[in-house]
Each structure stands twice: as C-alpha cells, then as structure tokens.
Design a protein around this nucleic acid. Structure first.
Lengths: 331, 331
DNA sequence: CAACAAAATGTTACGTGTAACATAGGTGTT
DNA sequence: AACACCTATGTTACACGTAACATTTTGTTG
C-alpha cells in the first residue's frame, strides 16, 4: 500500500536486475548459488511480499481457481473444500473462496468478482444460475465444474451424484422394512430438495403408496426438524417413517421423538441424508444416505486442473454415487 | 484467458477512447447520456468482464478485504461473515475468504496469498500467529482486525469478547444455583478453550470450590461430549454440574444424560457455550453463553473500512460482551 | 456574439513481474 | 585453436485500467 518493497528494490540493493530476483522465486535452480544466497538475505531483510497483479495482467495462468459454496456452516461443503484442497495443495494452485447463501443473484456477483481476479477455473456447487452468470462464464472461456448434482443444462463439466436416484433407493429401502406411511420432511426448497422429493414420490407410487410431504421454505435446522415432524404427525395418520431431506432435520426429528417418547425405529423409522457425524452420535444411530462429498471435491479439482493444464478429459460428467451409514434408525 | 474483451475493444468498436468506457463503469454520471447508452449496448454485446489486475498495480485501493476463518462448518464463523458482509456490501467492498483449519502455518499461507492480491485490510479470527505472519503483516502496512477474542499481543485492532470473564460469569451463575461439584468439559485445546478454563477455575476458587476438568485434544463433537461426561462421572464424585467449552459437547452430554436417565437440571446442571440453534431443540433447552458473533463481524468490518478510508478510530480494542440463551438446563 | 464556465472526451504516463530473446563468460571436445 | 554448448544474467517489451492533466465541445450570460 504505502511503499511495499518490489523486486526492483531488492535488485537495486544488490546491483543486479529484477529479472534475476524474479527467477530466484520462480525457478531458484537457475540462479547461481552465491547470488541465491545474497538474494535470500535481501528478501528476508526487506520482507518482500509477492505481488501477483502484474502476472494477472499477462495472459499467463494465475494458478488460482475460484470456488463458490452455498453455505459456510455446512459440513457437506467443508468436506468438499477439503477434498479440493488436497489436490490444489499438491498442484500448488491457490483457491479463492466465496459463498452464495443459496442465492443465484449472489452467486452471480461472487462469480463476477472471482473472474475479475482472473481465476483459471471455477468450481460451483449450484446448478441454477442467472442468465448473466451463464453469459459471463461463456465469455470468460475458462473451465467450470458444477459439483454435487447432475444438472439438466450443464455449463461445462459435472461431478456429482443423482439425488433423485439416491432418494428413490433410500425410500425403497424403507418400504422394504415394511414401512407404509412414510412422510417426506423438506426444508429450504432448493433444487436438490426437489430432486429428492421426486425420488421419494416415485418410490412411493411404485410401491402403491401415497406420498405425503411436509415442507418449510425456511433453512434447515434441528428445530425445523422437530417442528416438521410434529406437523407431520398432526397432519397425517399412522405415520411410521420419515425421509428427511438432510441430517439436520433428521436429528431434530429424532430429538422430538426422544422428548415425546416415540420409539425409533419401532414406532417411527427415520432416514437422513448426507451422513454427517452427528447422526452417528444419536441413539439409535441415524441411518443416512452418504454423499461422497470429499471424493467429489477431489475429482472436481483434479478434473479442473487437468483441463487447465490442457488435458482433454475422458468425460465431462462423473456420477460418484452414494452409500449408507450403518445406522439403526430404520429397523 | 484466451482473448477476453478489454476496454480498448469496446472503445474501438464505438470510435471512442477506453478512458470514456472506464468512466462509464466508475462514474457513469460523467459520461453523456447518449454515449452511455451506446457503451451499455457494446458492453452487453461483448460480455465484458472487469479486470482488476491493472488497478491492483497502481497504489490505489483494491476495495477488497481478506477474511481468514478457522473452519467452514461452524455457525460461529458463518454468522461472523454474515455480519462482515452486511458492511462490505453497503460500502461496495469485496471480500476474499480463506480458511485455516485452526493451524497457524496454514493461516500464514493464506494470509500470504491474500496479501499477494493486494487486499486493503484483513480480518483474522485467531490470535496465535507465526512469527512470519507478524512480520508480513507489519511489512504489508495494511490495517488488521483480530476478532472473537482479546489477544495479549494484538497486531493492530481487536473486536471480540473476554472469554475468561464470560466463563467466570457463567460458572458463578451455576454456583449461585447451589451447584458445588461442577466439572469443566474441554476439547480441542486451543487458546479460547484455555481462557474459558481459567475463568472457570477462578470462579470455583473464589467460591471455595475445587476445579475439576476432563479434556480431550480431539475436535469437539457430540460424541466427544458423551464420552467426556462419562469420564467425568467415572472420575469425580457427586458431580452436579458441567460447564462445557461449547454447545457440541453440551448437547452430547445431555444426550448421554437422556440415555442414562440422569435428570437435567435436577441431577446435573449443564451450561453450554456459543448459543447455537441445536441447544434450543433439547429438552430441557440448553442454557448457553451467547457470543455476539454477528455484531463482532459488523463492528470488525466497520472499523476496518473506516481505517482504510483514512479515519482514525476512537479506540483499537472493542469488547462486545456476552449474554445467555433462555435455557432450562441450569435449574 | 464575445467571453467565460461547465461538461464531455481525449492524452499521457504509470505500476511491476515475467516471457522471450540476447549476451557474456566459461567449459569441454576434437 | 576453433567450435559447440551451457550457465548465469541482462534487455526489452508487454499486459490494461485509471489518475491527472489537457483539450474540445456545448451552454450561458451580459
């Protein structure tokens, strides 16, 4: 800001050119050991901080990728970012992080910001985008991975899983345990929640059962889970199972059961979604659909960086599937 | 990357200079309405994306602040960032986000990256820093706010609360409810955990009671809360209260009580820390120390931006205090 | 309409790391 | 000794938005 040391300052001090100092940072083996030592001293003394602005101006790679996650308080996305960083650290890429609060308009603003910093690629966690977002990304001409989900109109590459299929499988599993009056508990009605509802409904219809849903537009939370279960029990008769759109709701619902003396799974089977740790601390342990979020992060970053490095990917869409926690809340 | 549109491209297309186009973005009122309209068309058509690299090279402000949070899955920090963004949005500043995983070495790396992007200021959530971090920040010459806590050796400005005082107050409150054998449950032994322990111990000593702690170096979780309470009951006699270093432990402990038929608060009083949503879903509701994290975010950003804009702050340290959730787990 | 003010646009220079190419000095081989 | 080759360092040019200053155009007033 005031007058931060530049490469030129260090070079002047040593009577060499800034090019040699630049080389010292980028490829030290090309600098003579004696010079290297002198530069090391001067750098240490001046407290030089790398300035990437000039490099961003050239058309060279910035070796930085942008990541937009919907929420900063969700283990799903923190695991995703962990996965991403496994790869970026190994490849010495930096990541710039932004969060959208599940709002496409905010996502647009954040993407615009990241593009203004000349990121080499983007990882997005949502599949709904504004028109302007799509236009900008096309203009930007950088590789993009949409992750977590399999969008209908992919921007570029995709790494995720089929939430409808996962929900279908999960509900089918509940039905196989002789549950007949399964209610779907949903919050924050975003696309993934809707996809799971579709899978739920399909499984119910195919088994000759009637889907019954309670939903709230509010964000998921433990207390929402309690409220929604209460509402389900008030609204529908003979409820013997709930399929929750995520583990927050499921844990809240199980809490409610504990408070009200409802036995899980005998009176009520509970299926969660995401496979968070908290489910496993419940008694009984929560059965939950596990999404391979860390693997999604790893695959997304791997794919993105490969494409940035000029490789042609074998495929543009990767479905990483799902599994289950070994819970006891089902039967 | 390939050949993104530049201001020059738009200017050429319209037979004007890029300066006018630049003005169109920065201060449209200085451009004639007719020209404005023409530029708007051209910009829309070309899909121009702002490139901030050249501006970063001048010594002008980048209007961007860096934020380093320890974790991406903790409501405490998401609320903090929400608070920060209230202000940055209003002031049209951007934020670049990074996370350190509670590791000072990682924090150092992330700060270095943020500085390389010429951020105008930094908000940090930790108070333990490597030597190199401190040196870099001094060199960088930008304002820094450390938040959440009141550090012993502040880098620059501080917005937080006194965790020792809060713990002291909380434990005193428990003692006032006639609890005598209160155990402190601690996990991930970071500085804030230690400060709370000090407050706890002081409150106990001052009441003529003996502090008793069970702790684990592992990260907090519900299951850790269960284990720690079990350990406390095994180790100490006549335990009638627990003060938990955070709500995760407290909820886990309450879970354990429910499983074991221990009545809260009659047999055991429980005090949490942070005031998260989940505590309010318990029965009885968890009493917890509420940290004003959103207010801390707002104040931190306000302060930082004021200083960036050249104002001289009235003070360099702001203690925003604490309060309690209206729980019933105490008596 | 002259004269000046205000608005709109143009001109110039700047910041700084690095790719690409150039050069100087040294080493080794025949 | 002549040549190829390598190593270490230097030179030059470039990326592009914007502050500061300059110029042109338009508007206004006595």
């Amino acid at each position: 800001m005031t007058n931060r040391a530049s490469l030129q300052d260090i070079a002047d001090q040593l009577g060499i050119t800034k090019m040699t100092v630049s080389r010292y940072f980028r490829s030290p083996e090309k600098v003579a050991p004696a010079t290297r030592e002198k530069i090391a001293q001067a750098v240490k003394h001046s407290g030089y901080i790398h300035n990437r602005a000039p490099a961003l101006m050239s058309r060279a790679l910035s070796r930085t990728i942008g990541v937009v996650i919907p929420s900063l308080s969700n283990q799903v996305f923190s695991a995703l970012v962990d996965g991403i960083e496994t790869i970026t650290n190994a490849e010495s890429f930096d990541i710039l992080l932004a969060h959208s609060g599940y709002d496409p308009k905010v996502e647009e603003r954040k993407i615009e910001m990241l593009l203004s910093y000349q990121v080499d690629g983007l990882i997005l966690c949502e599949t709904e985008h504004t028109d302007r977002t799509r236009t900008m990304l096309k203009q930007a001409g950088i590789p993009v991975v949409e992750c977590m989900e399999l969008p209908e109109a992919p921007i570029d590459m995709v790494v995720g899983l089929d939430h409808k299929a996962a929900a279908f499988n999960a509900v089918t599993r509940m039905i196989a345990r002789n549950k007949q009056h399964i209610v779907y508990l949903a919050a924050r009605l975003d696309r993934r929640t809707m996809l799971r509802q579709q899978g739920y409904e399909q499984a119910m219809w195919e088994a000759g059962l009637t889907p019954q849903t309670v939903a709230t537009p509010f964000q998921s939370s433990f207390s929402q889970g309690m409220k929604l279960l209460q509402q389900a029990l008030d609204t529908f008769d003979r409820v013997d199972g709930i399929f929750c759109t995520n583990d927050d709701l499921a844990v809240g619902a199980m809490q409610y059961c504990k408070n009200e003396g409802i036995r899980v799974p005998d009176d009520l089977a509970v299926m969660g979604y995401n496979g968070l740790d908290i489910g496993l601390t419940m008694q009984p342990k929560l059965t939950s659909v596990v999404t391979p979020r860390q693997a999604i992060g790893i695959k997304s970053a791997r794919l993105l960086i490969d494409v940035i490095n000029g490789k042609v990917p074998s495929d543009k869409l990767f479905d990483l599937g799902f599994s289950y926690t070994e819970g006891e809340s089902l039967s």
